[in-house]
Design a binder for these strands. Structure first.
Length: 210
DNA sequence: CACCAGGCAAGTA
DNA sequence: TACTTGCATGGT
């Protein structure tokens, strides 16, 4: 049992408080956001999501039937718009083929098996799969992202070059398997990353973990 | 102007 | 397994 993992969580929570993630109006919106936010600032993602809302196509079936070129235009502000339109289509095709577009049906699937299925979709990697599992479906899976690696590697918990699975194991083997806890912890790490631990802008003198 | 943002896949060696 | 590159907008 590594106590540092728990200590860091308590310090972050004490400093920043609840983060209320994922910022979205629906479970479906979380899934779309998970793909749109790949290597992209959340600010740009909200512009893309707003476009989808204004066009009234932010439902599974509407997006499924939307031409990919039109979808690409709508998600343009999120960057990589051609690739993301394709990835959204890949995911929607999977979602309807195996779960008839039903979040309820998908949520009933065994978490480990569902994770494998998600990873088989072209365009869904480990972080996107785990974001969907945790933030959309409320499954106890810890999400690892660039901030998480940067922060925890600076605190010598693992190396920044360690694999996704290695980093994930550090968290999941040292915390209760609690979706609410995983949700809050990861959100707090992103908050810390945005405020203090951005790339090439270390402000560790003011870091609340010190 | 340079650099970064809640990644991933495909190609190479 | 471990690199490298393409994808692209918008903020600092």
């Amino acid at each position: 049992m590594n106590k540092k993992i728990g200590l860091i969580y308590r310090k972050l929570y004490q400093h920043f408080g609840q983060q209320h993630w994922w910022p979205a109006e629906s479970v479906f919106e979380v899934m779309v956001g998970a793909i749109l936010t790949q290597n992209t600032s959340w600010q740009n993602v909200t512009k893309a999501i707003d476009n989808l809302k204004r066009a009234k196509v932010l439902t599974a079936r509407k997006l499924l039937n939307l031409p990919q070129k039109r979808l690409a235009t709508l998600v343009n502000p999120a960057g990589y718009y051609n690739i993301k339109a394709k990835r959204l289509k890949n995911w929607l095709n999977f979602f309807f083929k195996f779960y008839q577009g039903s979040i309820k049906k998908m949520s009933r699937k065994n978490t480990a098996l569902l994770r494998q299925e998600l990873l088989s979709v072209n365009g869904i990697g480990p972080e996107t799969a785990d974001s969907i599992l945790l933030y959309a479906l409320n499954k106890p899976v810890f999400v690892i992202d660039a901030y998480t690696k940067r922060i925890l590697s600076r605190h010598n918990m693992f190396k920044e070059t360690d694999s996704y699975d290695t980093a994930q194991r550090i968290f999941m083997s040292n915390l209760d398997k609690d979706a609410k806890l995983f949700n809050e912890y990861h959100a707090l790490l992103v908050k810390l990353g945005k405020d203090y631990c951005r790339k090439n802008k270390p402000r560790c003198a003011m870091c609340p973990l010190k």
